[in-house]
Simulated assay, not measured.
Amino acid sequence: MILTCRIEVPVLKKLITLLFVSASAPALAHLTWIDVGEQSLGLSTGHNFPAKEITVKGEYVQSIRCTTMAGELFELGFDAQSIRYVYPKKPANCVAKLKTTLIELTPAQGVQHFSENKVSKTLIDQVRATQKFEEEYFKLAQIRPVLVGDPLYNEDIAQFVSKPDDPKTIYVYKNGEPVPNLPVGLEYPETPITLWSNTDAEGKVKLILQPTSKALLRALITEQKGSGYKSQFLSVILEPR
């Protein structure tokens, strides 16, 4: 979802409201992913992966960090003419972090948003009992899982990761620790619905279906913050094996 902090861009407050009030039910779980090209990448957002509806422009992006095959770290800048992020070098992997947004919804819309993203029933029930819904929210998109210990690995945020001794398995880590029992959705173009499964005690992602074409893994990690909530959306592209 192309949103930014209301303090930085106040005019977007109305846009945030309109997006959520006018959207149909599936629209609240708006996906964002990296669109990989030969010379550049784009950040795409839409209701149904891989159907791109909007390109995320540079003003909404905190950073895009990439590594080469040799492990060299570099950052990408936005090209306003092409609406893309042009590679100075061919990347092996990239992680894009969007700016933090403050989302304001009615309790009913907050319940819908949390329910679509499989947030815990405890938090959903809390939202039902409130007079308003506020959520600090940012998105992280990856080309592929980040290897633990790699320059793109960041303990301060949630990421889809792999381990040096288990490179083919995908895990969810945050604060340097696995995230257990987290609902993870598989967006597979050949399947009209999101396929949900939960990470195990080690944060391992167990897919219900092994895709035979490009797909997207997505998750939302949410915690209570005062009278509101703090969330991170994360996604990673899956290539067929």
Rank of each mutant, 00 (worst) to 15 (best):
I64R: 02
I64K: 03
I64W: 06
I64L: 06
R65D: 14
R65E: 15
C66F: 13
C66R: 01
T67M: 11
T67I: 15
T68Q: 05
T68A: 08
T68V: 07
T68D: 03
M69Y: 10
M69K: 11
A70N: 13
G71M: 07
G71C: 09
G71N: 07
E72C: 05
E72T: 09
E72Y: 10
L73S: 06
F74T: 04
F74K: 04
E75Y: 09
E75S: 10
E75M: 13
L76P: 01
G77Q: 14
F78D: 04
D79K: 12
D79F: 08
D79L: 02
A80Q: 12
A80N: 12
Q81W: 05
Q81C: 04
Q81S: 14
S82Y: 13
S82N: 11
S82L: 15
I83D: 13
I83C: 07
R84L: 01
Y85S: 02
Y85I: 06
Y85M: 02
Y85F: 15
V86C: 05
V86I: 14
P88K: 10
P88L: 00
K89S: 08
K89C: 03
K89N: 10
K90W: 04
P91Q: 09
A92L: 04
A92F: 13
A92G: 09
A92H: 14
N93R: 11
A96K: 02
A96D: 00
A96R: 08
L98F: 02
K99I: 00
T100K: 06
T100N: 04
T100R: 10
T101P: 02
T101N: 09
T101A: 14
T101H: 05
T101E: 10
T101M: 11
T101K: 05
L102A: 04
L102R: 10
I103N: 00
E104T: 14
E104G: 05
E104S: 13
E104P: 03
L105M: 15
L105N: 09
L105W: 06
T106V: 07
T106S: 15
T106G: 03
P107I: 05
A108M: 13
A108L: 13
A108V: 08
A108I: 02
Q109L: 13
Q109E: 14
G110E: 06
G110Y: 07
V111K: 09
V111D: 00
Q112I: 10
Q112H: 12
Q112L: 15
F114W: 07
S115I: 02
N117P: 02
K118H: 14
K118Q: 15
S120F: 02
S120P: 00
S120L: 05
